[in-house]
């Protein structure tokens, strides 16, 4: 904000244990318009980490692949990736929107190792498939009206592990151990799952699901409650296409 092109060119980047200038690796151009901030990044950045870390406002568009930790811990604004993302995309998101129009690696919207509170608010949309352990330790807050949501194509195993109120919508199929150790929260799979966990119990069949944010999904679903290995009575739900 308020930076000239020359100021941006001398911004510092980490290359291993060295510090380099941004202008050495990127051609910077742009113009000042109104108060909105919009950054467009071009090129294959699959080894560039932590773009949009702790971002609060504005918009970043990335045309190409992107490395680890894209938009981690961001609190507002929007990031669009027109390519694939690596691991920890949107890790511990606290607000804002992350859109990935390709595949994404493991730990999408997950808590970093050792944290008991992962994604707290915001939306992640992944068109393609995601890796393992997405939405690890996601946590909602009814009082603060915070509802972390993840939309994705296909999902890997351990989707929504240790979920504490996150909402996950899988448009395709999901792998094993969906919603393992989920205390509460909603997981909707609009395709098949390989096998449900033994601690999930079938409750009924529904033809309409209302998500905590008010969105309604229509279709024939089997409703499971769980994970019962965490709590005997739980309002954690898993919906799988009948």
């Amino acid at each position: 904000m308020g930076k000239s092109i020359e100021d941006i060119k001398v911004m510092e980047l980490y290359l291993g244990n060295k510090i380099v200038k941004l202008g050495k690796y990127f051609n910077v151009s742009g113009k000042k318009e109104d108060e909105k901030i919009k950054i467009v990044v071009e090129g294959d950045l699959k080894n560039v980490k932590r773009i949009g870390e702790k971002m609060s406002i504005g918009e970043i568009i990335i045309n190409g692949n992107i490395g680890m930790h894209i938009g981690n811990q961001m609190t507002g604004g929007k990031i669009i990736v027109n390519g694939n993302a690596d691991d920890w995309a949107g890790a511990m998101l606290k607000g804002g929107e992350l859109e990935i129009n390709g595949n994404s690696g493991n730990y999408v919207g997950a808590a970093y190792r050792g944290f008991w509170k992962g994604m707290e608010d915001g939306i992640i949309r992944v068109k393609g498939k995601i890796g393992r352990e997405a939405m690890l330790w996601a946590r909602n807050s009814k009082g603060a009206n915070k509802w972390p949501i993840l939309y994705c194509g296909n999902a890997g195993s351990f989707l929504g592990i240790h979920n504490h109120g996150g909402t996950i919508i899988v448009n395709g199929d999901a792998d094993l151990y969906i919603g393992a150790d989920q205390a509460w929260g909603t997981i909707v799979v609009k395709g098949k799952i390989l096998r449900k966990l033994p601690s999930y119990k079938k409750t009924c069949e529904v033809n309409e699901i209302t998500l905590p944010n008010g969105e309604i999904i229509k279709g024939e679903f089997i409703e499971y409650s769980g994970d019962h290995s965490v709590k005997k009575e739980t309002n954690g739900r898993l919906y799988v296409l009948a």
Partner: peptide, 19 residues
């Protein structure tokens, strides 16, 4: 192993399993 551990934890809480 994960499924077995998961089932053991559910049984320990007094849940009847379907499988």
């Amino acid at each position: 192993d994960y499924e077995l551990l998961n089932a053991m934890r559910a049984l320990l809480r007094g849940i009847t399993l379907e499988e």
